[in-house]
Amino acid sequence: MRHPKPLPIWDRAQGKMFEEWMDDSPDTYETIPQKSFSQQFRSRLLYAALIGLYQSTRYSKRHIESFVRKYHIDMSEFEARDYTSYDDFFVRRFRPGVRSFPTSPEEMGAFAEARYFGWEKFSADQQFPVKGRSLNAEQLLGSADRARPFMNGPLIVARLSPVDYHHVHYPDSGHTLERHKKGHRLWTVTWKAMENKSDIYIVNEREIHILETENFGRLAMVEVGALTVGRISQVHPVEQPFQRGDQKSVFHFGGSAVVLLGEPGAWRPSNDILEYTQQGVETLVRLGDPIAKRC
């Protein structure tokens, strides 16, 4: 039995609310994934791998034009070139200068062009819009020792839609302390699905990076694969330092999410993100626009 539903989104740049829905990708909006045969089948890594193989062929490029037209994607913002496949289009890059990160060291820029939730202090008894277990630091990071610096600290969740720019960037300058890989499934990552299957972020395939940053202390950045996203490619060498705004990784095809955990009292998510989170509404933010401020 399937129960897909549209999602309410606050568009910060446009200053208006809208409902997000893709009628050609209803499984992305499934609210009861464990009861959907389609989700049970499509959540497996093998399915994502098969989809990825097709999307990487030249035959798949015929879907590009109709997708751009249907979802009103402004291609003038992206590099002008001939895409060799649908996956090649999916990982398209912005033209230089189209997006920028804050120059103030106190402001954290959006690490992805995505829909954001945020909490100033995320505790185990958190219930709405997602149950606390869904974003439990210890289970999300796979280790009690690894999670300890982030207990009761600020937390941000960024959900990327299939229509989005699917590159992830570093929110600040610094270096990588640890890298780990966890998970074995690819469920949809919408918060309505998480209300009915609270372990989605725990069982989904994910890349965990512990970062030491110049202005926001230690961060845990968790890139979570989702429905049909079977590949998270790290672009920046983890052994090398990074600068604010540098590209970090790329998601291949489908929806996905990034979770960012911080140390208690180090930084605070932006007011609009906090306010709309309490209403169960995600805030659509452009890459590099402010999402948090140093305390």
Rank of each mutant, 00 (worst) to 15 (best):
D11F: 02
D11I: 04
R12E: 11
A13R: 14
A13C: 09
K16P: 04
D24Q: 06
D27F: 06
T28P: 10
Q34L: 13
S36G: 09
R42C: 02
R44F: 02
Y47S: 13
L53V: 13
L53K: 15
Q55F: 13
T57A: 01
Y59C: 04
K61I: 05
H63Y: 11
S66G: 02
F67C: 01
V68A: 00
R69A: 09
M75Y: 03
E77P: 06
E77Q: 14
E79P: 00
A80H: 04
A80E: 06
F90V: 12
S100K: 08
S104K: 14
M108F: 04
G109E: 13
A112N: 15
E113L: 15
Y116W: 07
Q126D: 10
P129D: 00
V130S: 00
K131E: 14
S134T: 14
S134R: 04
L141D: 03
S143P: 03
P149Q: 02
F150S: 00
M151W: 10
N152P: 02
H166C: 07
P171C: 12
P171H: 14
D172F: 12
D172L: 14
S173R: 11
G174Q: 13
H175E: 15
H175C: 05
H175M: 07
T176D: 10
K181A: 07
K182V: 00
R185V: 12
L186E: 08
L186A: 06
A193N: 04
M194T: 07
N196V: 11
N196M: 12
K197E: 15
D199K: 12
V203M: 08
N204A: 13
N204W: 03
E205A: 10
R206S: 05
E214Y: 02
N215M: 12
F216C: 07
G217H: 05
R218N: 10
A220V: 01
G225R: 04
T228G: 15
T228E: 15
R231D: 13
S233Q: 01
V235Y: 11
G245W: 06
G254R: 06
A257L: 12
V258A: 09
V259C: 08
V259T: 05
P264V: 06
L274Y: 10
E275A: 07
Y276T: 07
T277V: 02
T283A: 10
L284C: 05
R286L: 15
K293M: 05
R294H: 11
C295H: 07
